[in-house]
Design a protein around this nucleic acid. Structure first.
Lengths: 255, 255
DNA sequence: CTAAGGGCTTCCATTTTCCGGAAACAGCGC
DNA sequence: GCGCTGTTTCCGGAAAATGGAAGCCCTTAG
């Protein structure tokens, strides 16, 4: 009396949009092209579900599918992303100043904003022959370790600070500060000095100094930093340059 | 006997993802910040529906909501967009060559790819004192009018060419070519010459010359163009420069 | 002070869309 | 042929989506 069972009694899954976005999240800098199976695996969902969702995303142009069957992020999404105010807008306004900084110091220059409890790197200019750094434009990092991160954390809402300081704090080197009490002191210093210093906290041969960029209301919305080889200069010499540059960018943004 | 009717009998709507993407589409270069009501209006859906969908998008970081209640495109979307291979990757590889071209000519330089039956501008360098152009990075335009558009159309799959040539063809000036027969001839010329010429087809004081950028297999994936004031130079003088630049970019991409 | 208007948020009965196992399909190497 | 891997289609059942209505919070007007 029973028809040959088709489909599945359907269990609690969650909002569709969430699952679609999980699929998009499967893409990253290392994996810009994925097969359907890889997508399904990485997003942890059945193949047929992934297939249907990807079809819809494809139809709209959020993702594209090559003749080889691989999925890639589509131009439509790039266009949309170009409309994000903090990323591209800030980036364009700051670029000339970052280039000045790069010209003068020949070191690595970084521009970043805070997203939740992480740093997102918006622009990065590699100094000729400077220390290699781990970061990538569009990439993320913990707020507690880098020069830009410390600046952004120091000026973040109290609840964000608490969440970060009470949560587990990633360690990258032997010098990474993971003690909440010590971190609080560093944040206070960052606020009173107007710049942050991250000494060998990310890699053992690098030091970075960051300064805050403010909008017209004085709210900190981004941070610049110089990343140099540890021991090549004193933090204070860099701080002057970075602060000046950050202030110039802040003024340019308010105009 | 009837309880005070709540909710609505629900009518046929369509896939959720489509509606969510329609909401995102409501953002454009002019309107980077929208209220919920504007979003609902532009995406043509009930307020409560828009509200629920935006909440989900917000939760993931696709959009952000300021303290003022306005919605903006979120950083997460910008990050994702940065992973699109055609946009950013091509852009970075081509940028040095475009700057050379801009330095030499002091004119407007444009880099574009095809998306469906439209041109998408990936990069644009404004020449100092050159003719003002209408286009914007991330913007779209018809394939039939611009220098880059003609190149991309000339090398598009036959079905795309037919769709464009048989469909309605937008007119921008008195000189815009809208006759399919004449356009076919122009496309044939573009292919045999290795460059396209758009003479006063977009505005009455501009002329643009475009050339194809190819991947390692020889497939045309993008186009460069110079846009100059009409009458300031002959197309052939520009063609040499643009073709050389396009070939250099093609080689850089294959490496 | 009350009223009116604009925008935002929550609620919930209805039903539409989504879910995903299974089975068929398409390559490829052996 | 057979097995293997990755992709596509199918469809009954169930969860998630839907959107009027009502409640909120403002600011402006009377």
């Amino acid at each position: 009396m029973s028809v040959p069972r088709r489909g599945r009694p359907a269990g609690p899954t969650g909002p569709v949009i969430g699952r679609a976005l999980r699929l998009l999240d499967a893409f990253d800098a290392q994996r810009r092209e994925l097969t359907l199976s890889e997508l399904a695996r990485r997003a942890d969902m059945p193949l047929s579900t992934a297939h249907r969702l990807m079809q819809e995303l494809c139809a709209w142009g959020a993702v594209e599918r090559g003749t080889d069957g691989l999925y890639r992020i589509g131009l439509r999404l790039w266009e949309l992303g170009s409309l994000a105010p903090r990323g591209p807008g800030l980036r364009e306004a700051a670029l000339p100043f970052l280039e000045d900084l790069s010209q003068i110091t020949k070191e690595n220059v970084q521009l970043a904003v805070r997203e939740g409890t992480e740093v997102v790197f918006v622009e990065r200019i590699a100094g000729s022959g400077a220390v290699p750094v781990l970061t990538r434009v569009g990439g993320r990092f913990a707020l507690t370790a880098t020069g830009v991160g410390l600046v952004l954390l120091a000026h973040a809402p109290a609840e964000v600070q608490e969440e970060v300081l009470n949560g587990p704090i990633d360690r990258y080197t032997a010098k990474t500060v993971t003690d909440p009490v010590q971190l609080r002191r560093m944040l206070a210093d960052t606020r009173s000095n107007g710049f942050s210093v991250s000494d060998r906290q990310v890699t053992m041969d690098s030091l970075s100094v960051g300064a805050p960029i403010r909008d017209r209301h004085g709210v900190v919305i981004a941070a610049v930093s110089l990343v140099v080889r540890h021991g090549s200069t004193t933090p204070h010499a860099l701080a002057r340059l970075v602060r000046t540059s950050a202030q110039a960018i802040s003024r340019a943004l308010s105009a």
